[in-house]
Design a protein around this nucleic acid. Sequence first.
DNA 1: TGACACCGATGTGTGCAGACATCAAAACTC
DNA 2: GAGTTTTGATGTCTGCACACATCGGTGTCA
Lengths: 241, 241
Amino acid sequence: MTTSLHHRAIENLGTRIVSGNLPAGHVMLAEQLEVELKVSRSVIREAVRVLQSLGLVETTKRVGIRVLPPSRWNPFDPQVIRWRLASDARGAQLRSLAELRAAVEPAAAELAAQNAPAPLRLELVDVAYAMRDAGHNGEVPRFLELDIQFHSLLLSGSGNEMFANLMGQVAETLTGRTVHGLMPDHPHEAALQWHVDVAEAISRGDSAAARDASDRIMRRTMSQMSDTWTEQPRVFIPVRH
Amino acid sequence: MTTSLHHRAIENLGTRIVSGNLPAGHVMLAEQLEVELKVSRSVIREAVRVLQSLGLVETTKRVGIRVLPPSRWNPFDPQVIRWRLASDARGAQLRSLAELRAAVEPAAAELAAQNAPAPLRLELVDVAYAMRDAGHNGEVPRFLELDIQFHSLLLSGSGNEMFANLMGQVAETLTGRTVHGLMPDHPHEAALQWHVDVAEAISRGDSAAARDASDRIMRRTMSQMSDTWTEQPRVFIPVRH
DNA sequence: TGACACCGATGTGTGCAGACATCAAAACTC
DNA sequence: GAGTTTTGATGTCTGCACACATCGGTGTCA
């Protein structure tokens, strides 16, 4: 047994729901899931409880287990994000993540310039220069590794645990080339200098400069990636009064 | 019975863990929880499964149910947020949410100016003017209601489901006076005009102007509330390479 | 004698099967 | 149509078997 049964049940149902294979409104019965997944009732129940807490299903007596529409899902949950990245909505998920990152990183840079502990500032500067060297020397794998480290440091340096988790929880689960959807895979000359600018500004506590440089990086990244998720349909979640 | 047993168990354990009452590293036994909460094994097991998916605990055979440190918690989960708001870390949680909102809303305004459907733009303008009227007339409850509606519309108008969820999941849980921590309770004259500016800019598709006006609102809001969470200790989550 | 590898006892989560309780949708009665 | 009964699904409880990580004892070898 590689993973626990209930974990496999969660994966099975989660992927099917997020992919649209099990459409919103679809009703399942616990007993039916038992025979379909060939597991006992307790496994099904524990899996359903987790999916319920993610907003993927709801249970009603006398009805069964009903699949909820995407507007009810928790779009910040790492599992939901992973399932969406493996589905047809992959492009839309990458765009959402990129937009969130583009919004947050400049703010994180501003906060880091005000609050980050001294050792983190020093490490940030070191990594920025190492990035620049790696970029100039064409060491692509090393550059990618440093890039992730740089942005992780930046976000955690903000002292905001939600910012820190953006890279920490999300991009961490996206190993390897998946991150390429969020970051450019080969460095741009100006961007290399902008990373150094961000680090230096944070190092000297210049929050405005840190924000501006970070914003430049993000805007370039976005324009560089925008053609990747070509014309993914945007979904507008209605606001309930 | 108002709520289900497993839900009560989740609430009980969740609040105790997030409040620090059950410190990280503390190990519990399922059997012990049964007698303590006076519920059966299945209830405990389902509750533990949900807490596990939130990153609050981990289970190990031969050891028990171990409480995880805050760095492992999912800071975006609505339940975790609610539990933190009810704990000593309430100030830090409010600050984190406010910083996230301040980072996201200008970006959402920019996107809404580019992508929002026409009816939403019109509604946004209507709400902005209604807000201004309510503010001028000193109708505080109505103003607060319109304020929430305005920002909900703005975020969902971005077409980014993560942005849309910020108000939907977060501010929804902050009912009544809790909102006072996130929003000023009486309107400022300039801010009223800025809301109109945001709506008008989005209406005519001027993304830069929408972003600028929204940024002004956020900066004013942040400076207005920064003294509320006086000197909450910032927690820097270490980045693991 | 001491260090170390092995191995079985123990305790705990994991998974299973069956029973009864509860409650809301649906059918029924008036 | 309103109120009542029936029904069928989840909710809860319990006893059991199994998997497996940890601990401690035992044996071997230096």
